[in-house]
Nucleic acid binder design. Sequence first.
DNA 1: TTGTACGCGTTATCAC
DNA 2: GTGATAACGCGTACAA
Lengths: 351, 351
Amino acid sequence: MSTIRDVAKIAGVSIATVSRVINFPEKVGIETRKRVFRAMEVCRYKYNALARGFATKRSHTFGLIVPTITNPIFAESTRGIQDFANEQGYQVILGNSDYQYEKEAKMVEVLRERQVEGLIITTTNLKGETLKSLLDDRFPFVLLYSTVRRGPISAVGVDNFLGGYRATEHLIHFHHRRIAMLAGAFNCSDRSFHRWHGYKRCLKDNHIPYDPDLVLKTEYSLARGREGVKSLVSFKNPPTAIFCSNDFLALGAMAGAREAGISLPQDLSIVGFDDMQIASSVTPALTTIRQPAYEMGELGAKILLHHIGNKVYKPVHKILATRLVIRESTTVVRTMKKEFYKTKAMSVHGA
Amino acid sequence: MSTIRDVAKIAGVSIATVSRVINFPEKVGIETRKRVFRAMEVCRYKYNALARGFATKRSHTFGLIVPTITNPIFAESTRGIQDFANEQGYQVILGNSDYQYEKEAKMVEVLRERQVEGLIITTTNLKGETLKSLLDDRFPFVLLYSTVRRGPISAVGVDNFLGGYRATEHLIHFHHRRIAMLAGAFNCSDRSFHRWHGYKRCLKDNHIPYDPDLVLKTEYSLARGREGVKSLVSFKNPPTAIFCSNDFLALGAMAGAREAGISLPQDLSIVGFDDMQIASSVTPALTTIRQPAYEMGELGAKILLHHIGNKVYKPVHKILATRLVIRESTTVVRTMKKEFYKTKAMSVHGA
DNA sequence: TTGTACGCGTTATCAC
DNA sequence: GTGATAACGCGTACAA
């Protein structure tokens, strides 16, 4: 590979001039410029961005750590991040933590050694050493998908508590009282934990006793959703509705329920969380809590770049709005159907 | 940030020794080693992998270009790539082409400037300048998802022709004769083109006339699948089955068909291509051509690393097996149901 | 407008 | 076992 030295020699100028042609062409005489460009062609010169990064101490790269890119919701936010980053001349190195703190910590280590200028992390452990040490070193980073309202860490996420609350409320509105929850393991994500809190609180506010047997903590996957629902419906007093901590779990639960001979949504209402693309195209279309994933990623990248660019660090916390998207996977509890529509008619009259 | 120079000074050794402690600890006396390690702690030394890359001309990075990471099938293969790469001490920079050649070309440019050691590309244009110039420069790269059986370019993919053939054959076996195809635009991917050829050929082999009106070339998305099916079923002589070029299109088609009041699979059989995770969990579960995405990615990365490591370049072509996964979205054409099962019974006797 | 010279953090090749 | 020193390719003062 030829370098600016080769180009300089061929063009009969100094390396500084070549460098200028690359970075500030207008600062170089038109004739010299042309000569340099031709010289570049002659020796098939290719710019070395890594060398620049080394010289300027700016890699124009940042690291992104997600639980796993195979979850479409993370793919979505990743696109948001990439699109903005690329536009700004940044590239992103992607790593998966599989919801394991050790992998996350290792990845942070590796990426920092690689001189990424900043990190976007969907963390598995909000309280871990990793984030603390990032903070100590004043290393630019922002959390994604986390509900952090204050403190020194920048984050963009949604109100998971409220999301859980709304999902549950929607079910209660449909007269469900035996409402189960398929939750992601709490040690994997504070998100699931907050959603569960929202669920619990909503139950309480509506004077529905909390039954711990109705809460299954499991891994975020189709397979676990499938299994979970089967165990749930085998109870002597099974739930009439399930709130799932993410759409994978919900979609898996729908499949599992059908395998168990349950008809949806008549015999079992299901609500998810995320609103991944496919959620609106399945049957019954999934009722779910929508997270604006792409926007979240975009915003996260924007904030990170801002941190990188500014000397003074002022953490920013953004809570984006979620939205309950009511589709077909939830309906009025069977025994209450007549009742429900009567009430409905009345309330319409009342309005 | 402190450097090996600082460490050397504190430990009272030369920078060469510090470097040796980092790379070949056993080559350094135990006492000196300890002193160096302590010095590292003192000045909170962090290794700079970028500087190493600069010095050794090995970035331990490679680039990955996919159409879009939001398509779960590409997320799957990406995981295969990452897992293998990380294991080998490599990181991957991810870029999206959105099936646009210009974006792909630009991305290749950017990544090469970044000194990635190799490239894995799911290309949009097999014949373009980009790949040619990569070849000219003897730059290590491998194609993913492409059917390339010979020539100078390394590739791992599946037999798209055969996949298209088998999908169509399956439909014909179910007595369908009006078989439409929802295809990805041919200028976006040779994959769709080959699948279409398989479809056409199978029709021919079974003496079914090819009707160009039954082939819709469109973008790979849920929305386009939805629209496509609606236009298809509005024909005076509508198809009884549709072969979709990928699962997104198929899933979209299922949703669209239902919106058009068609019951699945009785009135319309649908087969997809990819077998993305969700395909087995929808209703009706999607019959599709399975591609081993994760393995494909893994193998691609393996081949790339091999190319990077070896001086002599010998292209390798791997065609992985696809598999027709018959689930619930395809069935015997309505009018032929009785006929079909009679034949079936006979053939059982015959066997 | 153009050129000289140095620095960035590491590896690598010699000597000792 | 250890140290001195020259690369690596670029940016950037500063000088001309």
